[in-house]
Design a binder for these strands. Structure first.
Lengths: 364, 364
DNA sequence: GAGATTTGCGAGAACGTTCTCACAAATCTT
DNA sequence: AAGATTTGTGAGAACGTTCTCGCAAATCTC
């Protein structure tokens, strides 16, 4: 009777039981190299008997790759991005044989720095990063220099040569303006969440993350193109997703001539508008109209449904894995800047004013 | 001029540059064992110069622990559970010095099995599992037997001696019934999502996951206690979260005497109700009332706000990490069954019928 | 049937770290 | 000042794999 081993069986135990060498046992399990069929069977049987499972840490150590991908995201779960992106990335990674180590930065650049460092220390084979700011990118430059494969998603970072997968938020924003205009709206309000500014501001901050930059430019483009006057007076930039978005909404609604339609840059802002509107007994899609970015189940189910700029988040995630895995398998892939199309989904949150268009073509 | 090393510097490179042995360099970096102050400084300087970072895989190999926790969840993102739980777990893990390897089972038992296996192979120090079913648990028994620490969250599994962290869904469900009753409701409808049944059913399936079991029992308890007649005729059990929840809603609404209030077991069901109600021009909180499980930002922001049974998901996540880390640090902790309180948050989705209570005390 | 090739397997190194042990030098005792 | 203790360091093993190499046996070639 053999002495019961306390810890998990290793390839050595398997080799002993099968009466072969470590190397042969390894070959039999791994199915590589020259090896006789009957030996494979013998070893497999021994492995099954012992309940042997290869130690992936030892394997990673020896092989120099962990089959693990690091994900650095902003776990901002009202954003309807984190969850969808995470799920699609985890699923796509799995089908490629990779597991995902997840890190949350909460939009903090120091946390992002540290997350990347920790993940690299853990020898992930590659990284997917949602950069929290466009202002700082020395850590990404260092990552690039280290040769560790990585892909940026949701936001580009100027000055970093890396594959990025983003969405065409410019066109989405532009389409949102045109949609509201076509329904007769002339007085626009824009509620933009940004990490860069301090508190509330009506001035456009100098440096925005690319997705917000694109949205602002798209909105502006639509306004200018349609001849909407003084669009620059219609903005509220609201620091960060957590700080007083309801105050920003109130500021917009309390204007002498409030907007008939408000376009919000994310769901946080949209929810703030919903809340304030509810408090004031303003009915969405009638007293005040709304278009927001990012679709979600609840935006579709509400009455009225929210008109949204939908972004292909799942595709973004799976494409990120695809590109990352390609680079892991074969270094030196060209850095691509992939931009996925957005789509305006019209529901009931934008009132149709065409019968009675607002009488003043110029802005308030 | 030294030859430029292509790969990342190791402790050996540091030792060489500092002019000490591997062991000494390791001690200096790790800050353990006997070592002279000036040597530490010398080694630290060399490490900084080379940009040395310890290889955590090698470290894990040697130390026998990875400082990694495996998370096996159901990435069902309409459930408002996955994202909140994941975030709180990731954050709590980080502050304990752990990273999180995430796996999604999509409520599939085979995927769950495989996920646990893969995670164990990767030598995670412990696991947090949202079990996808109560029917199968041999894999959890095997996990238990292997001695690898793990904690169950959201759902208990009978027959498995393990620490579990759940919420008091029984009381939550009971409170929901009483709340509607107090507002004058007598005709109840219950919409229960379940993985066990086939399609739609009005019969209670034999084996439900514990959280659903608790909710059903809680609802039943409230009904019986309040003297609501024939509550057994008010149920629709709907297979899985993805299969025809809208059909289930319709079935309930198309009854000869439809319910005045519907209590749904999750947000998927609630959203289905919202959708169908919207299509039929039924106003929530007026024509039809709704209470659902799990709070969310959008449930609070909608007009009317959704009355919900709120569960402390963040606390659940951080507590799971706490218990798991305790077991990792010191094996043999007692298996606790922790039940966190739920809270009914009354908003506007339940109509007040007290002025005109429904005339029939018995059920339809 | 002798040389050339193929086949199957084992010995041992390697991955990068930490840990145990031994030992010399330094410091402390009395 | 001689023994006892403490201090700092290095050699080498260990963690569990995989991989390279070499060698003997088996098979092929003409």
């Amino acid at each position: 009777m053999a002495i019961k081993k306390s810890s998990a069986p290793t390839i050595i135990d398997v080799a002993e039981l099968a009466g072969v060498s470590r190397a042969t046992a390894s070959r039999a399990m791994g199915g590589y190299g020259r090896i006789a069929d009957h030996t494979v069977e013998q070893v497999r049987k021994a492995a099954a008997e012992l309940g042997y499972r290869p130690n992936e840490v030892a394997r990673a150590m020896r092989r120099g790759r962990t089959k693990t991908i690091g994900l650095v995201v902003i776990a901002d779960f009202t954003n309807a991005f984190f969850d969808r992106a995470t799920k699609s990335i985890v699923d796509a990674a799995k089908s490629g044989g990779y597991q995902v180590l997840i890190s949350n930065t909460d939009e903090d650049i120091e946390a992002e720095r540290q997350a990347i460092e920790t993940l690299v220390d853990k020898q992930v084979d590659g990284l997917i990063v949602v950069p929290s700011t466009a202002a700082v990118h020395d850590h990404l430059a260092a990552l690039k220099k280290s040769g560790k494969p990585f892909v940026l998603i949701d936001r580009r970072v100027e000055g970093i040569v890396a594959t990025s997968i983003t969405t065409d938020d410019f066109s989405g924003a532009d389409a949102a303006v045109r949609h509201a205009y076509a329904l007769g709206h002339r007085r626009f309000g824009f509620l933009i969440a940004t990490a860069g500014t301090n508190g509330l501001s009506e001035e456009r901050p100098a440096l925005l993350i690319s997705s917000i930059e694109d949205r602002v430019n798209g909105l502006l483009n639509g306004c200018i193109d349609l001849g909407i006057k003084k669009p620059q007076q219609s903005w509220i930039f609201c620091e960060d997703n957590r700080r007083d978005p309801e105050l920003a909404v109130a500021k917009l609604l309390d204007r002498p001539k409030p907007p008939s339609v408000i376009i919000t840059s994310n769901n946080d802002m949209a929810l703030a508008l919903l809340k304030v509107a509810g408090n004031r007994k303003l009915v969405i899609g009638k007293d005040i109209s709304l278009i927001t970015f990012d679709d979600s189940q609840w935006a579709a189910a509400m009455a009225p449904g929210l008109t949204v700029v939908s972004r292909p988040v799942e595709e973004l995630g799976s494409l990120a894995i695809e590109k990352l895995v390609a680079e892991i398998k074969q270094a030196g892939q060209p850095a691509e800047k992939i931009v996925l199309p957005t789509e305006l989904i019209a529901r009931g949150s934008v009132a149709n004013l065409v019968m009675y268009p607002q009488n003043e073509p110029e802005n308030y």
